[in-house]
Every structure is written in structure tokens, then in C-alpha cells.
Simulated scan of single mutants.
Amino acid sequence: MSARLGVVSVVQAIINDLRSRIFNGELTPGTSLGEVDVAAHYGVARPTTKAALENLVASGLLSRNAHQSARVTVLDSTDARDIYQTRAIIEAEAVRLLASTGHVPQAALEANAEITALTNASPIDIVEPDVRFHSALVNALKSARTSAIYAQLSDEIRLCMTHVQDATLLSTEDIAAEHQRLLTLIESRDEQGAASTLAEHLNRASKKLEAHLDLIQSNPK
């Protein structure tokens, strides 16, 4: 049993490191990650590498066709639209339900306070608290299944946010202000207002990211 736990911990450590390298830009979209090369980089057996890469393929951070090496996912505007639309389906209903009782999650308040304090920092620095803000709204429903479904999107959500903030498509001040407005509507029990505001908030980010990705695709380096 202990040996099995050791293998799992090594796999998770590789997953965590690869995720970090993707999000900080070290592994850029389209970068090939062959099992042999990754195994050599981390000094582990190939089956361990394979397990880590399969996990990241499942989360959407890597893509792989049959008999080919995994590659860091290259998002296009269709991907971005689908991810944001899926988020909106879940999150808009979450904030409507929270507004029905006026429950404002403390974790969301804390995450937005952190974002507000980062208004003079690099836009990329707000990705983590931004992810936590939106996750807090869903997790506040106390539904294990809803949270699990949303968690399956977490890496793709973070990838989209990283693109948005890396390109400074939305200002930190505007994001914090929109979050605060949403929390105020939840607290005042305005179900429709909260759901609509959340949908508009995500749609605005989606449209800007879609246009940005289309521009990159039309002007490849």
C-alpha cells in the first residue's frame, strides 16, 4: 500500500509541476511533451509519466491524437466560447440560488478583497484569486456533484483566465467592481439581477478572449 501511495505522489508531483509550467508560460501552447522526454526530465519511469500526461489530457491542458505525443492545448475562439458558456450555465444558476437566500460566501468576499488589493500588480497575479472567487460561488451550494462537475473545468477555466490577464484584456479594477456588484445583488436577494450580472460578466470576458484568439490565429508568429 505504501509503495502505491508513493507512486501516486510522484505522479501528482509531476502533474502539479507541468500545470505550473503551462500556466507560467514556460510550456507554451503547442509544445510537444513526449513520454520519453518527460520521463527523462523528471527522472521517472515511463508509466509514471504516462499517468501524469493522461491526467492533464483529461483536464484539457494537454491534447493528444492517437499514436502522437501530447501537446500543450492550443485554445481557439470556439474552445473559449464553449468553456465560458459551460461556466455560465453552472455559475449563473449558482448565484441565482445563493441570491434566493441572500447568502454571500465568505470565501468569495475574501477572494475579491485580494483582487482589489492587487489593482497595481501585474494582471496575471489575479488569476488565482479570480479562480477562487468563482469557485466559491459554486462550492457555496454545498452540492458535491455540482462542485465535482465544475472542478472538471477548473484547468480550462484557469487557462482561459491566464490568456485574458496575460493579454490585459480586462482591467483588475473592472473585474473587482463587477464581482462586488454581483455580491451586492446576491446579498439583496435579487435572483434575476445576480444571474444576469454573472452571465454578462462571463460573456464580456469570453468575447474579448475570442477576438484575441482569432487575432493570434490570423497572425501566427
Rank of each mutant, 00 (worst) to 15 (best):
V74L: 10
L213S: 02
L5S: 12
D37I: 04
S69N: 13
S196I: 00
A92R: 11
D76N: 12
A199F: 05
E93V: 04
D174R: 12
A66R: 15
L61G: 03
T49W: 06
H201C: 01
G34W: 09
E114V: 10
L27H: 10
N120T: 12
D125E: 14
A148G: 06
R145T: 14
L185A: 07
A66F: 13
V138L: 06
L169E: 13
L198T: 00
A194Q: 06
A45Y: 05
L198W: 03
T116M: 02
L169H: 13
L170F: 03
A199Q: 08
G6E: 15
A144C: 02
A70H: 11
K142H: 14
A177G: 01
G43C: 03
R64V: 13
P129A: 11
A58I: 00
V44I: 14
L202T: 06
N65H: 14
P105H: 09
I83K: 08
V127D: 11
L53C: 05
T119F: 01
E91M: 03
L53G: 07
E114F: 04
Y150I: 04
E173V: 11
T168W: 09
L185H: 05
G193Y: 10
H163E: 15
E191K: 09
R96I: 00
T184E: 13
E54V: 03
A211T: 10
A88E: 14
V127T: 12
A121D: 12
V57I: 15
N139G: 06
R46G: 04
A80P: 00
E191Y: 05
K50M: 07
E35F: 09
S122H: 15
E128G: 00
T119Q: 14
N112H: 07
E187S: 14
I115T: 05
K142F: 05
V104R: 09
H201R: 10
T172V: 15
A177H: 06
L61H: 07
R81L: 02
D125T: 10
R87M: 09
V8G: 04
S218F: 11
S154E: 03
M1K: 10
R96D: 02
V74G: 00
A205G: 12
I22V: 15
I115Y: 07
A70M: 04
A176N: 10
A70F: 11
M161P: 00
S77T: 01
T172I: 15
A205D: 12
I14K: 02
K142S: 09
A40K: 06
L109S: 07
T197W: 09
V74C: 04
T172N: 05
T119R: 14
V36D: 08
L159V: 00
S100F: 07
L33D: 10
V104K: 07
Q165N: 12
A167T: 05
V7Y: 05
S77K: 11
